[in-house]
Nucleic acid binder design. Structure first.
Lengths: 353, 353
DNA sequence: CTGAAAGCGCTTACAG
DNA sequence: CTGAAAGCGCTTACAG
């Protein structure tokens, strides 16, 4: 636990000199090369590592940014998609010298302050909020934390927000369903009371916009609960080759695939399946899934950049952004007779940025 | 940005009094209730939140713990299993008032210090290392960080380590494969040069221990690369109803499932599939997968507790732990004729702690 | 019961 | 070229 003071006394110089040398300001402080070298050697010998806390205190900034993820009480569910974003955020911040501190909070059962020291004390330069929080929590956050970036959140305004273009995702999936020539189109999503995240309504709206103007009805299917065997089976029995199911999320796509398998139905052969969302490594785990791609890691990286600009007070650089994806047709969809569309014929251009 | 000093001057008391009141030490400091109340009111009005950095500096502890996860250079892969553990760690530490700071490091291309401020400065009370690091990195970490807990890591010694009993996982899967009566048993794992994580050799050893003493050969299959279509197809073609494939990880189980589907084979009906590993929410996404369960969130929670004890210097309480799982038979395996085992007949007792 | 003051380990304006 | 000293915002031993 060496300190500048100890190094200074060993080297026979002042604390000032040590500080300047170790922070590479020898020229501006015009410290002789010989002295600088001696100081560096001693610091090295003493295995010196600066006390980040003292530095933060002096400089009035912590070089720490929080990442807030939501949690349902007592739920151990680890949302793998959130993790992709977190890693992107981490990459962008870590290389800029920032530490990323994680916090996971319950809905509103308890005050923020009781849940994490992040809210009780001042320890952050800013916070990236992932996913949506109840409106009153969002407001409280802005009072407590100096700079907030809203990532994949319901919060949307001119500055400081970044999200996927979810309506585009819905449109791309809906358009593909139509142009592949399926006679019947359904969508699996959450029941209305669980559609609080903006992606639920936007993806649905995007799908509707492509399907309904053509006079095709869109049937809405709700994912049955894990233990609701009768409804799971019933849903699986409905699947047939002229039906394409558009899944809101990859969770629902995976769940539907499993339900289908239980009655020996395979996506692509026995029904069409396309997903509005994407997950990294799907190219390894389920390469055949037709889907609208999205790079969540990249979104995290962008959120980190936005945070850094916000900390640097470059407000104009923090204009909110909406990120696009593109259609990827795999083996879970097939062109139907008379669709006039080849296997990958419905591929659309990536959305603009 | 109120400070104790400002509150003190407004309240007409000393900084000492404010500090004692706001840290709930009014009795020991014998501060009158009226004064205490006045101070609290003013602090509230000024929206006071203590400066965590100043507090940390004064107390000589940061109340921050790092979590280190490995990364392959340039790889965006978000390891969902690691995230489960991270959330468990976070739960245990957050409620004890600690902040969890994430760091992700490359192999050894660059020094630790260049990769995260966590290593360059002193900002942590301890670190939980997730997964395995190269041996020289592990050694360096112990020099740099005051207290380390090794979670799911190759590092194994009497104190400060926590991991799954991977050999037990292999044994449970192997035992099930045998007792279900499959005539042929294979295992999908990584090629030998990628078996550096201890789970690779331990799961394999566990499977072998149950299969080979019975005179049953264990065929080793290597997961083909994502783009290696011929080998993927070849592997899929080999699948048949008398063969059970034991998958090392859920990634390989998912990949195999997809390969099988491409040739219209369904696990359970057209081949047996059992996995040595588990993932949260598989009950929703793939409830039918036969597997050896494991609660990674719980492992993270335990790692957090171990860290807290280590910080409190309760060394005896930090004895290393090996956590068990149990067999769960779903629909991807079926009892073969003459196995003498019912559908769920091979269920084993949970392993000890 | 309460307060003035030291000190945690840095950085930097100021003075030689 | 270099150093003594102030100060960031807390906590707490010491003195009334």
């Amino acid at each position: 636990m060496a300190t500048l003071k100890e190094i200074a006394s060993r080297a026979g110089v002042s604390v000032y000199t040590v500080s300047k040398v170790l922070s590479d300001q020898t020229e501006s402080a015009r410290i002789s090369a010989a002295r600088a070298e001696a100081v560096r050697r001693i610091a090295q010998e003493m295995n010196f590592r600066p006390n980040g806390v003292a530095r933060a205190m002096r400089q009035g900034r912590t070089l720490q940014v929080g990442v807030l993820v939501p949690n349902n009480p007592g739920n151990r569910f680890a949302h793998p998609l959130a993790y992709e974003t977190i890693l992107g955020i981490n990459e962008g911040l870590q290389q800029a010298g920032y530490l990323v501190a994680l916090a996971r909070i319950d809905d509103v059962r308890r005050g923020l302050e009781e849940q994490s020291r992040m809210f009780k004390e001042r320890v952050l330069d800013g916070m990236i909020v992932l996913d949506s929080m109840p409106a009153d929590v969002e407001q409280r956050l802005e009072e407590i934390i100096p700079k907030c970036v809203w990532c994949d959140s319901n919060m949307w305004r001119e500055h400081g927000c970044i999200r996927r273009d979810e309506e585009q995702a819905g449109r791309l999936a809906g358009e593909a369903a139509v142009s592949l020539g399926y006679r019947q189109i359904a969508m699996v999503t959450y029941s209305p009371e669980y559609r609080s995240h903006f992606s639920a309504s936007e993806r649905l709206a995007g799908v509707r916009a492509m399907v309904e103007p053509l006079g095709r009805p869109l049937e809405i299917l709700i994912e049955p609960g894990v233990a609701d065997m009768p409804r799971r089976r019933q849903l699986a029995e409905q699947l047939h080759p002229e039906l394409i199911v558009i899944c809101h999320s990859i969770y629902q796509a995976q769940a539907l695939r499993s339900m289908g398998e239980e009655v020996e139905k395979i996506a692509g052969r026995d029904y069409g399946l396309i997903c509005c969302d994407d997950m990294h490594q799907l190219d390894r785990l389920w390469p055949g899934l037709s889907r609208v791609t999205f790079d969540r890691y990249g979104m995290g990286l962008e959120a980190a950049r936005m945070m850094l600009k916000m900390i640097a007070s470059e407000k104009t650089a923090c204009v909110s952004r909406r990120l696009g994806g593109e259609l990827l047709l795999g083996t879970t969809t097939r062109a139907r007779d008379g669709s006039g569309t080849g296997r990958n014929g419905a591929a659309a251009a990536p959305a603009g940025e």
